[in-house]
Design a binder for these strands. Structure first.
Length: 569
RNA sequence: CGGGGUGUAGCUCAGCCUGGUAGAGCACUACGUUCGGGACGUAGGAGUCGCAGGUUCAAAUCCUGUCACCCCGACCA
């Protein structure tokens, strides 16, 4: 492409709308433009990268035996009624009515549609297993869209759905997708990690996420420093501390702690480590009451884990002040498990404490020397907390470490979550109707582009991984308006390289060198080729990789071969 | 949903407090000089000051409402 014919300007200044780096660079480089909150247009340069990502995904999905198709973005509400998600999904599902007042929604995902197709089309186990995928626009009405295309409302997703006659086949299909995903993310040139995950609103039992590692990532991921255990913080298992609990040594005693409402206040007031205290959180229960959740003072409650407990509402909701008062007679800040009537869960680490400190359910009062069994009966042991760095890995090997990640892929074993309510049945070998087992597999295509930038940039701009760069080579003639020779050599190179199948961005603008170099670096094209009178005198051209700090000269006659060798390496 | 903030030229912003002819830089157009790291000069084009109502002789500026956008929070008692 000739840059002189690309009418979109790069920006020197950062548009006010952009907070994160990838967003800023995408706007400055002219890859995207915002239409409204969470809605972006992809300009030609951005689309080239997007298409490259799609191509890699397509190739690997096809290679894994999946079949590409395309489903409508607008979906009838009745399908969602049938699966139960019309109620479950919440306001992220953008609902609309057509002129006949019939309910529709914009598809945030396509389990319902594909299940509907499959239940109509597939009648026999002989037609299974099968995996259908599409690369298509999704809409999720995010509470707060941000970070440009990273958390947009409209975005492009590759979604795949596999169907199986039994669980064993599902596991096999899931494994195949795991492998395909690993190949996809390897091929995009990104540093990534597969982690165990919570399956969230999609539902199902087993799931793993693929994260692009980046300091700015929205998700905390944890991994063992000795083996391959890795999980999203939401899903990371906290092991119970080893060894038996110490026997009570202190008597339960109520001490005044005026104004000490937080663990921090309390620990300071009593000159005691937060890890010797417990905090008690009251959440709404399913039967109109409250449920108490107890974690060690220095630990954080994990909402995802908590909302899966029997008797706890999902999503988790903290109890109101009124409910807390009627259940305990006091206010937040002084809650404790001693004397609490009702269902009470305690985290393993809290349960391992002896002689701990807790609220006394009385304003400005706490207990010291509290002990389980002796002072608090009926606590149910559970994993309630977020793991912390240095915890033992649940795999048994090593300690847990933290990193930040951007979720770009998620694979699920759904089982019969959709086939059951929607009656996705086939006949098995013995002629019996059986529910199909289902897997689903998503990749955030547009998000990959942003994540790639988030992981690969410097102060000058984007540094595209080669496989997804919009162009492989940027060709920069210097002073071509004044030098017929520069003009001629550059034109010829552009033709030769293009003819050799190399994607070249030809900066044939009548601009000063500084402008061209700055734009080439902002745009992040991996290989830069400079044609200038200075080098041509000696029959040389100049080459520099985007990551290099120095240019190198090479004989002009070998240009195509030289560039080829650079691309290969 | 709660809190905070911002809407003035395509972009980044000043002007608003203290009402009186709408500004700068970047980008854009033309000409000239310049030309290996985001040049300079001259001349120009471009804005219903988010929208609606009000106060006033007079509103970008004050008041009310409204819309849009951005940021923070939405459990750690």
């Amino acid at each position: 492409m000739r840059l002189s014919q690309y009418p979109i300007n790069t920006l020197k200044e950062v548009p006010a709308e952009a907070e994160v780096l990838s967003h800023q660079l995408m706007l400055r480089a002219g890859l995207i433009r915002r239409l409204a909150s969470g809605l972006y247009s992809w300009l030609p340069l951005g689309l080239r990268t997007l298409r490259k990502v799609e191509r890699i995904i397509r190739e690997e999905m096809d290679r894994a035996g999946a079949l590409e198709m395309l489903m409508p973005m607008v979906q009838p509400g009745e399908l969602w009624q049938e699966s139960g998600r019309w109620q479950e999904y919440g306001p992220e599902l953008l609902r609309l009515k057509d002129r006949h007042q019939r309910d529709f929604c914009l598809g945030p995902t396509h389990e319902e549609v594909i299940t509907d197709i499959v239940r109509r089309e597939l009648k026999s186990y002989r037609q299974l297993p099968v995996n259908f995928y599409q690369i298509q626009t999704k809409f999720r009405d995010e509470v707060r869209p941000r970070f440009g295309v990273m958390r947009a409302r409209e975005f492009i997703m590759k979604d795949a759905y596999s169907f199986h006659v039994d669980e064993a086949s599902l596991r096999q299909g899931y494994r195949a997708m795991y492998d395909a995903y690993s190949r996809i993310f390897t091929r995009t040139g990104l540093e990534f990690r597969a982690v165990r995950a919570d399956s969230g609103a999609i539902g199902g039992d087993v799931s793993q996420e693929f994260h692009v590692l980046a300091k700015s990532g929205e998700d905390a991921i944890v991994f063992s420093d000795e083996d391959d255990y890795a999980a999203n913080l939401e899903a990371a298992v906290a092991l119970p501390p080893p060894g038996p609990r110490a026997a009570p040594a202190q008597a339960l005693s109520k001490v005044p702690t005026p104004g000490a409402r937080t663990i921090e206040d309390l620990a300071r007031f009593l000159h005691m480590a937060p890890a010797r205290t417990v905090k008690t959180l009251l959440v709404d229960g399913t039967e109109n009451g409250v449920v108490a959740l107890v974690v060690r003072g220095d630990h954080e409650l994990n909402a995802i884990k908590a909302q899966k407990l029997a008797g706890v509402t999902s999503p988790l909701h903290m109890a109101s002040a009124e409910r807390i008062r009627s259940a305990t007679g006091t206010e937040p800040g002084y809650l404790g498990p001693v004397g609490f009537k009702g269902r009470l869960y305690a985290d393993h680490s809290a349960l391992a404490l002896a002689d701990f400190v807790c609220g006394a359910n009385e304003k400005d009062m706490h207990y010291t020397g509290a002990n389980w069994d002796r002072d608090v009966q009926g606590a149910i042991a559970a994993d309630l907390r977020n793991v912390v760095e240095g915890d033992r890995s649940p795999s048994g090997q090593g300690r847990l470490r933290f990193a930040r990640g951007i979720e770009v892929g998620h694979i699920f074993q759904l089982g019969c979550k959709y086939s059951e309510p929607m009656k996705g049945l086939v006949l098995d070998e013995s002629g019996r109707e059986v529910l199909m087992h289902m897997g689903c597999y998503g990749i955030g295509v547009t998000r990959i582009v942003a994540a790639a930038i988030e992981q690969n940039h410097d102060e000058r701009g984007i540094i595209w991984p080669e496989p997804i760069a919009p162009f492989q080579v940027v060709l920069v003639p210097i002073g071509q308006q004044k030098s017929a020779r520069v003009q001629e050599v550059a034109d010829r190179l552009y033709m030769q390289l293009t003819a050799a199948g190399i994607e070249v961005l030809y900066d044939d603008r009548d601009a000063r060198p500084g402008v061209k170099f700055a734009d080439a670096e902002l745009l992040g094209v991996p290989h830069r080729l400079v044609v200038a009178e200075r080098g041509l005198e000696a029959g040389k051209l100049e080459y520099r990789h985007r990551r290099d700090t120095q240019s190198q000269e090479f004989p002009a006659a070998d240009a195509v071969a030289f560039i080829r060798s650079r691309l290969a390496s």
